[in-house]
Amino acid sequence: VLKALERTRQLDIPDEKTMPVLMKLLEEAGGNWSYIKLDNYTALVDAIYSVED
């Protein structure tokens, strides 16, 4: 979780936006981090930006 938060902080995305999206992605992935961690957490960042749209 810390590495995911560090990555999104680099992009000026607050933890308050990151955590709900991260928890949803983890739930959808059955707790499997490998998809979320791919390409420096690209799936997480993309999911956060899609929620903002």
Rank of each mutant, 00 (worst) to 15 (best):
V1L: 14
V1I: 15
V1H: 07
V1E: 06
V1R: 06
V1F: 15
L2C: 15
L2W: 06
L2R: 13
L2H: 13
L2A: 15
K3F: 01
K3W: 02
K3Y: 04
K3N: 12
K3G: 14
K3S: 11
A4T: 03
A4D: 05
A4L: 04
A4Y: 05
A4P: 03
L5Q: 02
L5G: 04
L5V: 03
L5Y: 01
L5D: 03
L5W: 00
L5I: 05
L5P: 03
L5F: 04
L5E: 03
E6V: 07
E6W: 06
E6M: 10
E6S: 07
E6D: 06
E6A: 09
E6T: 09
R7P: 02
R7K: 07
R7S: 05
R7Q: 07
R7G: 01
R7I: 12
R7E: 06
T8Q: 01
T8V: 05
T8M: 13
T8D: 01
T8Y: 05
T8I: 07
T8R: 01
T8G: 02
R9F: 03
R9I: 01
R9M: 04
R9E: 02
R9H: 03
Q10M: 13
Q10C: 09
Q10G: 10
Q10L: 12
Q10A: 14
Q10P: 02
Q10F: 10
L11T: 01
L11K: 03
L11V: 05
L11C: 09
L11D: 03
L11S: 04
D12L: 14
D12K: 14
D12E: 11
D12N: 15
D12Q: 14
D12F: 12
D12P: 03
D12Y: 10
I13N: 02
I13F: 07
I13S: 02
I13G: 03
P14C: 06
P14Q: 04
P14F: 05
P14K: 07
P14A: 08
P14N: 04
P14H: 05
D15Y: 06
D15W: 07
D15R: 02
D15F: 06
D15L: 04
D15T: 01
D15I: 04
D15A: 03
D15S: 04
D15E: 03
E16M: 08
E16H: 13
E16P: 05
E16V: 09
E16I: 10
E16R: 08
K17G: 02
K17N: 07
K17C: 10
K17P: 01
T18V: 15
T18R: 02
T18I: 05
T18H: 02
T18F: 04
T18W: 04
M19A: 02
M19V: 09
M19Y: 10
M19G: 03
M19S: 03
M19R: 04
M19W: 11
P20V: 12
P20N: 08
P20C: 10
P20R: 11
P20T: 10
P20S: 10
P20Q: 11
V21E: 03
V21W: 05
V21L: 06
V21N: 02
V21C: 07
V21Q: 04
L22V: 03
L22I: 06
L22E: 00
L22H: 00
L22T: 00
L22C: 01
L22S: 00
M23F: 09
M23S: 07
M23E: 09
M23K: 13
M23N: 08
M23R: 11
M23A: 08
M23I: 10
K24Q: 11
K24W: 09
K24T: 07
K24F: 07
K24Y: 07
K24A: 10
K24P: 00
L25Q: 01
L25I: 07
L25V: 04
L25W: 04
L25F: 04
L25D: 00
L26A: 02
L26E: 00
L26K: 00
L26H: 00
L26D: 01
L26S: 00
E27L: 11
E27N: 09
E27T: 10
E27D: 11
E27I: 12
E28Y: 08
E28S: 10
E28P: 01
E28F: 08
E28C: 10
E28K: 11
A29I: 07
A29H: 15
A29M: 13
A29V: 12
A29D: 06
A29Y: 15
G30R: 09
G30S: 09
G30P: 02
G30T: 04
G30Q: 11
G30K: 12
G30D: 11
G30A: 09
G30V: 05
G30Y: 08
G31D: 08
G31P: 04
G31K: 05
G31S: 05
G31M: 08
G31R: 03
G31N: 09
G31T: 04
N32V: 07
N32A: 08
N32W: 05
N32H: 07
N32Y: 05
N32S: 11
W33C: 03
W33R: 02
W33D: 07
W33A: 03
W33V: 02
S34A: 13
S34K: 12
S34I: 09
S34L: 11
S34G: 13
S34N: 14
S34W: 15
Y35Q: 13
Y35F: 12
Y35C: 11
I36K: 00
I36V: 08
I36D: 02
I36G: 00
I36H: 00
I36Y: 02
I36Q: 01
K37L: 15
K37Y: 12
K37N: 11
K37Q: 15
K37R: 12
K37P: 07
K37S: 15
K37W: 13
L38R: 13
L38W: 11
L38I: 10
L38E: 14
L38Q: 15
L38K: 15
L38A: 15
D39P: 03
D39S: 08
D39L: 06
N40R: 06
N40I: 04
N40L: 06
N40D: 10
N40W: 07
N40M: 05
Y41H: 01
Y41S: 01
Y41C: 03
Y41L: 04
Y41T: 01
Y41I: 05
T42F: 13
T42M: 13
T42K: 15
T42I: 11
T42W: 11
T42S: 15
T42R: 15
A43P: 12
A43N: 09
A43C: 07
A43E: 05
A43R: 11
A43V: 11
A43M: 15
A43W: 08
A43D: 02
A43I: 11
L44E: 03
L44R: 00
L44T: 02
L44G: 01
L44S: 01
V45Q: 02
V45H: 01
V45R: 03
V45D: 00
V45S: 01
V45I: 15
D46V: 11
D46M: 13
D46Y: 09
D46A: 12
A47N: 04
A47T: 06
A47D: 02
A47S: 06
A47L: 07
I48D: 02
I48S: 01
I48W: 03
I48G: 02
I48K: 00
I48N: 01
Y49H: 12
Y49P: 04
Y49D: 06
Y49C: 11
S50M: 14
S50K: 14
S50H: 12
S50L: 13
S50T: 11
S50F: 11
S50Q: 13
S50A: 15
S50G: 13
V51H: 11
V51A: 14
V51K: 13
V51N: 12
V51L: 14
V51M: 14
E52F: 12
E52I: 14
E52G: 11
E52W: 14
E52V: 12
D53V: 13
D53T: 14
D53C: 14
D53L: 14
